[in-house]
Design a protein around this nucleic acid. Structure first.
Lengths: 110, 110
DNA sequence: TAAACATATGATAATATATTCATATGAATG
DNA sequence: CATTCATATGAATATATTATCATATGTTTA
């Protein structure tokens, strides 16, 4: 993470958002809006992990995890690299942490 | 908005999130993950509006809007007050702006 | 190169969700 | 107090989504 977010920056960011951008935003948030996916993302806060590790951490079967990994990757929230037989996944950027942190604050204060 | 979000604060916020909290977070993000709802939220960035105004802005029928307003209110993202026959809605807190701003940044950079 | 291992994928079934339509509630007004 | 206006709500339908099962793909190793 490399940036600060203050009132001024926030206000600038939310000015003049087009209808298309709002739809894109909805699509992005939909990705976070599933507990399996958000658990995967949070699992990757520790650093990169392969599919088997994620399955163990979440106690879910491999197919379900792979399906969700694909959705996360298509959304560019995670990236992957191959290491022998294994595929290793990691967070694609720091926005994931920021977005989840904001959400957490809202949930805590509600 | 009254706070700054820097790396340190973000890291603190995302430490030790329980499974239940992650599920709550998923539920919260699910609310943002629908284009009608996010358009309503963005519409309210201008300030408070009644149901009819929101219907006009979004060019959608009243029942659909009311159903979504109820979901947004249950999630504590908006609040309402009565003014005569009209119900007037507004954003419940500033996290909404911050969350949407973060999402927008991600979408723009993708 | 056949077998074993790790992951991905397609089809299916179960569940959740959004919008519409019809109608109910609640407030203002003639 | 009957009517109109504004909003809410319930039921139904249409669509989307998730997990599971079976199987395919790709990589290593005996």
């Amino acid at each position: 993470m490399s940036e600060n977010y203050d009132d001024k920056k926030i206000d600038h960011l939310v000015r003049n958002v087009s209808e298309d951008e709002l739809s894109d935003l909805a699509e992005l948030f939909k990705i976070f809006g599933d507990s399996t996916r958000i658990k995967i993302l949070y699992d990757l806060f520790d650093g990169e992990k392969n599919v088997s590790e994620i399955c163990e951490d979440l106690e879910m079967n491999q197919s379900a995890i792979s399906h969700q990994l694909k959705i996360l990757k298509t959304s560019k929230l995670i990236k992957s690299r191959r290491d022998g037989k294994a595929m290793i996944y990691s967070l694609a950027d720091d926005h994931v942490k920021v977005i989840i942190a904001m959400g957490k604050e809202h949930v805590e204060e509600g």
